[in-house]
Design a protein around this nucleic acid. Structure first.
Lengths: 180, 180
DNA sequence: ATTACTATACTATCCAGACGGTATATTTTT
DNA sequence: AAAAATATACCGTCTGGATAGTATAGTAAT
C-alpha cells in the first residue's frame, strides 16, 4: 500500500496492452498477464473491466492535472502561464508516457461517462486559459493547435518533421508571451 | 448497382452503430441489423469485419478528399486556398456527417494499417498547406488548431461556446488571408 | 485474525466466420 | 425462342473459440 501500489502497476499494464495490441485486445486476461498477476488478482483490485478503464482515466487525469499545475506555478511570469504550461507539458512530457492516449481510447471505447474525468479536466483548463491575461481567442487557438499535435500522435496519422514541430512549438510559445 | 449501392448503405450503418453503441458493439450482427440485411448478406459484400472497417475508412477518405479539393478549386484567391478549404470543410461540413469520426475510431481499434488511407490523405494535405503561398509554420498552426476542434468533437471532451468557436473560425480564416 | 492478495476452476455469453441454401437476373447454347 | 448455365445478391443456422465475470480455496503480511 505504501509504495507504488499494485493498482498503479495494473493501470500501466493495461496501457501497455492497448498500446501494443490495440483496444480490442484489452482483455482482463491480457492485462493480468502483462501485470504479472492472475486474473483473480486483477479482479480483486478492479472488479470489472469498466472499473479498470475508469481507473486508467482517473489516474491519467490526475497526473496530467498535476503536471500542468506544477508547470504553471513554477512560471515566474504570471501572464500566459497556463497557456505556456499546456503547450510545454503536451509537447515535452505527454509523449514519453502515452498513457493519456491509450486511456482516452479505452474510455471512448468502453462508455461515454468514463470520459467524465477528462471532461472536467478540460473545463478547468479552458477556464484558466481564457483568464490567463492574454487574448482569450488567441489563447484558445494556441491550445487547439497543441491538441492538434496531440491528435496526430494519438492516431499516428501524420508526422511533422521534428524541425517543423520545433518551429511550431516556438511560435506558439512566442504567442503565449506576447502582450496581446 | 446503378444507385447508391448497397455497400455504401452498409458503411453508413456501421458508422451509426459505432456512434450509437460504441466501438465494442461494432459487430457483424449489429451492422447487418442496422443495415436491414442478414449477416450472410453483409458478409457477401464485406467478407470480414476488417474488410468492413477498411471500406469505411476508404469511403470517408475519398469523401473528405473530394470536399476539400472542390472547396480549394472554387476559391477565387489562390494564396491560402488550401488552408481555407481545410478550415472551412472541417468547421462547416465535417460535423454534420460524423462518419469521419467513427470510421477513424473503428480503424484505430481494428488494426494499424487500416489507417493508411487517412495517412496518405493527410500527407497530401500537409504538402498543399505548406505550399499554399503563406508562411508554412503559420499555415501548419492553422491546420493544427482546426484539428484541435475536431479532436474535441471526436471525443466529445469539451464544448467551446458557439460564439467562441465562431471567433476562432474567423481568426483562423483571417490568418489564412494575410499576406505574411 | 484480519486484510491483502493469489490461483484455479468454472459458467454463460458473445461473436466471427463458414456453409448450405434460395431467388432472381443475365448470358450462352442449341 | 426455349433450355441450360452462370452470376449476383442475398438468407439463416451452426460452431469453435474467446471472454467477462463468479466461486472458492487458498497464502502472506501486519
Amino acid at each position: 500500500m505504501g509504495r507504488n501500489s499494485r493498482k498503479v502497476e495494473i493501470l500501466h499494464a493495461a496501457s501497455k496492452v492497448v498500446s501494443e495490441q490495440g483496444i480490442f485486445n484489452l482483455t482482463l486476461d491480457a492485462t493480468a498477464k502483462e501485470a504479472g498477476i492472475s486474473k483473480g488478482g486483477l479482479l480483486y483490485h478492479y472488479p470489472s473491466k469498466e472499473a479498470l478503464v475508469q481507473g486508467m482515466v482517473e489516474h491519467l487525469a490526475n497526473n496530467y492535472r498535476e503536471k500542468i499545475a506544477n508547470n504553471a506555478e513554477a512560471d515566474p511570469v504570471d501572464k500566459g502561464k497556463w497557456v505556456r504550461a499546456y503547450v510545454d507539458v503536451t509537447f515535452n512530457q505527454a509523449y514519453q508516457n502515452k498513457d493519456m492516449h491509450y486511456g482516452l481510447l479505452a474510455a471512448k471505447a468502453v462508455s461515454s461517462n468514463s470520459l467524465d474525468p477528462i471532461r472536467e479536466l478540460y473545463t478547468e483548463w479552458q477556464h484558466e486559459i481564457e483568464h490567463d491575461g492574454i487574448d482569450p481567442i488567441k489563447a484558445t487557438i494556441i491550445r487547439l493547435a497543441t491538441d492538434g499535435i496531440w491528435l496526430s500522435e494519438l492516431f499516428d496519422i501524420y508526422h511533422i518533421e521534428p524541425e517543423k514541430k520545433e518551429a511550431v512549438y516556438k511560435k506558439l510559445k512566442d504567442w503565449a508571451n506576447e502582450s496581446d
